[in-house]
């Protein structure tokens, strides 16, 4: 969870520059302590926070990830290099052509979690068919696994491979109760390196919410991000 404290209340080494030697100041000011206490008490009370979107990058791989926390919903979208995805599906019996088609479809590892508690009894549900991928030249939906699997010619993908695909991709619809979470691949159907905004739609306690994550980037088709 990310907490953004007002900058004005953070301890600053530039405060009271003249009398620091004569009257040493505590490292943490009284105002800051009060603010932190209020925030901690709000956390204990389970008060919902407003939408927070954070972007970061893995130090080792360079893969970028986006993290959204809003109400009881937590979503993490992590880039997958096309080579990772190619390797995953070829190891599970896919032909190079189909593995490549999947790999260059802007795959993100997607993690969705309900951060509520059993006492809240609040359900969070997602339907990927409602998510919108927005670019300057238009918008489209997420590439869903059901029509994708139906598009493969008969006998082109074996049973074990189909099962791997079915369970590796994120479910199109899923409900999460307290502590529930799921991992899976989500395909945004754009070429490697494409940049897009995502309107992420979900329901919390029966109420529909939409949050836009701006400037998501499909991983480029390279072995490793710099």
């Amino acid at each position: 969870m990310h907490i953004n404290l007002p900058a004005a209340n953070l301890p600053s080494p530039r405060r009271h520059p003249g009398n620091r030697m004569l009257h040493p100041q505590p490292a943490v000011s009284l105002m800051t302590i009060r603010n932190l206490c209020v925030l901690l008490l709000l956390l204990l009370a389970g008060t919902p926070l407003a939408a927070e979107i954070a972007r970061s990058a893995d130090e080792e791989t360079g893969l970028r990830k986006w993290h959204l926390a809003e109400g009881k919903l937590e979503v993490e979208l992590v880039q997958r290099l096309p080579d990772q995805t190619r390797g995953f599906f070829m190891a599970r019996g896919f032909s190079p052509a189909i593995a490549d088609e999947i790999a260059v479809s802007c795959i993100f590892q997607t993690i969705i979690r309900n951060t509520g508690t059993q006492a809240d009894a609040v359900a969070v549900s997602v339907d990927l068919a409602q998510w919108r991928v927005i670019r300057a030249d238009g918008e489209q939906g997420v590439r869903l696994k059901e029509p994708w699997m139906a598009s493969w010619p008969e006998n082109s993908v074996g049973e074990a491979s189909r099962l791997a695909f079915q369970w590796a991709l994120f479910p199109t619809q899923q409900e999460f109760l307290a502590d529930d979470y799921n991992w899976g691949m989500t395909a945004f159907g754009l070429p490697p390196g494409a940049v897009f905004d995502l309107d992420l739609v979900w329901q919390e306690d029966g109420t529909m919410h939409t949050t836009r994550i701006a400037a998501l980037e499909c991983a480029p088709d390279v072995e490793r991000l710099q």
């Binding site: 505590p26 943490v28 009284l30 302590i33 932190l36 206490c37 901690l40 008490l41």
Partner: peptide, 9 residues
């Protein structure tokens, strides 16, 4: 104050 903060954390 520090003790209070640590306790809360």
């Amino acid at each position: 104050l520090r003790q209070l903060l640590c306790g809360l954390l």
